[in-house]
């Protein structure tokens, strides 16, 4: 085997190997989206975040507009403090509502943003005041059973609260 043939094959091998890694990074790992774009950070407090993870999507009207940057526990209010990175291309009013929602029945949890009507837009470092926690299945079931039990008793007051 002469020298130039070896060089040719090694060159092809290196090109193919790098192409394979690029295929993994671009097509499989989706490097292109959301890594280069600029973003701003807002915070939101939730009473319960359910299974929300760091790097989970932030969606508005079903479109991904950002990522969850950080999740930590606030020692003073005993709530979860979630930091969101939102793409600078998407501006939201200051009274936007953040909800923790689930995609599908067993799907991952994400933060849903619902725009409000304020004229002032959110800036870097702002805090979202209106939040809605994740739905915890156990609480939902116990509420349902409690209502059922209240319905069953004839002498119980309607709307027991």
């Amino acid at each position: 085997m002469n020298r130039s043939t070896i060089d040719l094959w090694v060159g092809l091998f290196v090109v193919a190997g790098i192409a394979g890694l690029l295929f993994l990074a671009l097509k499989v790992g989706n490097l292109a989206s959301f890594s280069s774009s600029q973003s701003y950070q807002v915070q939101a407090k939730f009473a319960n975040i359910g299974g929300l993870k760091v790097r989970g999507p932030v969606k508005s009207a079903g479109v991904v507009v950002g990522r969850v940057a950080d999740v930590r526990f606030d020692n003073e209010s005993y709530e979860a403090l979630v930091t969101l990175n939102i793409d600078l291309n998407y501006q939201f009013p200051r009274d936007t509502t953040a909800k923790i929602l689930t995609s599908g029945i067993l799907g991952e949890q994400y933060v849903g943003l619902e725009a409000g009507g304020d004229g002032v837009m959110l800036k870097n470092g702002d805090r979202l005041r209106l939040t809605q926690s994740a739905v915890v299945l156990e609480n939902l079931i116990s509420q349902f059973l409690f209502n059922k039990a209240a319905e069953g008793k004839p002498e119980a007051k309607p709307e027991g609260k």
Partner: peptide, 14 residues
């Protein structure tokens, strides 16, 4: 060679 081979293996597997 090894990282290139592993990358090609994964790409081919996908």
């Amino acid at each position: 060679s090894m990282p290139l081979l592993a990358g090609l293996f994964s790409a081919m597997g996908i």
